[in-house]
């Protein structure tokens, strides 16, 4: 479709993958660019984005929010996904196969991810969620939240570590943060006895990270229902992108999603043409071929 080619052309030509045209390149939009460029077969530009992320990686193995801001390091999981997409399986899939290859950016990043975690909080009546689960935080030294945990879980799964205890605990955390009636927000469920509201973007991201998982509590199914019912042509770009990706990861692509994405791309272009939002829409346009699913699906699943 023309809008997709237009966005890919812009990404290929861009000298600045920042959150906005005025800002410096940032790791999250660069990683998303690498993912979509690789998935759409624009490998030279994808490699350029992946190389930028390698250059941004610091000695600890982590990747900060930009080349000049090495903290916080929450984009590290996204960088791993980008590198895996660009190398397309050429890099070692298992961490334990690569101990002697510690120079490989992916391995260094994985080691950092496995060594980092959110801060546990003693359980209290004020917070309903299991605050003793570690997961991952946005910022070192703070509590775990849903989105950074989802990024880390996706990265670990993409590297064949879906059975690693940290991955399993991350999955438990994401399920624990789903609201009883489905959906989730940034990562609180109930505070002072009140159940909080769900939001589309984190719900879509949670579904993406929970692809292939089962949840006897039913909250995963109810999250699928929430996202499927709430998403539509008016959904804003970033939320729509993650919602479609999340539904795709569970084989639940909604009818007409291509048109919704195109409309969202038109709206986004009219409103300043945020390249990161457009990039996310092109990733969602891949449907069941989205790299978030292709990279992280359990082995043997085609």
């Amino acid at each position: 479709m023309a809008w997709i080619h237009s966005v890919l052309d812009r990404l290929e030509d861009s000298a600045n993958w920042g959150y906005s045209p005025q800002s410096q390149p940032a790791s999250e939009p660069v990683a998303l660019a690498a993912l979509t460029l690789a998935a759409h077969g624009r490998r030279v530009a994808a490699q350029r984005a992946a190389s930028w992320l390698v250059a941004a990686q610091i000695a600890s193995g982590s990747v900060g929010i930009s080349a000049t801001e090495s903290a916080p390091q929450w984009p590290t999981g996204l960088a791993v996904l980008a590198w895996k997409a660009v190398t397309n399986g050429q890099a070692s899939r298992d961490l334990n196969e690569s101990q002697e290859q510690s120079h490989i950016p992916t391995v260094r990043a994985l080691n950092w991810l496995l060594a980092s975690s959110g801060e546990k909080i003693e359980r209290s009546a004020a917070l309903k969620h299991d605050s003793t689960l570690q997961g991952w935080s946005w910022v070192d030294g703070t509590h775990s939240w849903l989105e950074p945990t989802a990024f880390a879980v996706l990265a670990l799964k993409a590297c064949g570590l879906e059975r690693h205890p940290r991955t399993r605990e991350g999955v438990r955390l994401i399920v624990d943060r789903l609201l009883p009636s489905g959906g989730c927000n940034y990562g609180n469920t109930e505070v002072f006895g009140q159940t909080l509201r769900p939001h589309m973007l984190p719900s879509g991201l949670a579904l993406t990270a929970l692809a292939g998982e089962s949840d006897p509590s039913g909250r995963l199914d109810r999250t699928l229902t929430y996202v499927a019912d709430a998403v539509g042509p008016e959904t804003t770009a970033a939320s729509l992108g993650w919602a479609v990706i999340g539904l795709a990861a569970h084989g639940r692509l909604p009818n007409g999603f291509e048109r919704w994405l195109e409309t969202a791309a038109e709206r986004t272009t009219q409103r300043g043409a945020s390249l990161p939002r457009l990039t996310l829409l092109t990733l969602a346009a891949l449907g069941s071929e989205t790299p978030f699913f292709m990279l992280t699906r359990p082995r043997g699943v085609s």
Partner: peptide
């Protein structure tokens, strides 16, 4: 900014 402080800005809470 959330990119530095997170969503929520948990750094400030701590």
């Amino acid at each position: 900014p959330g990119v530095k402080y997170g969503w929520p800005k948990n750094v400030l809470h701590y």
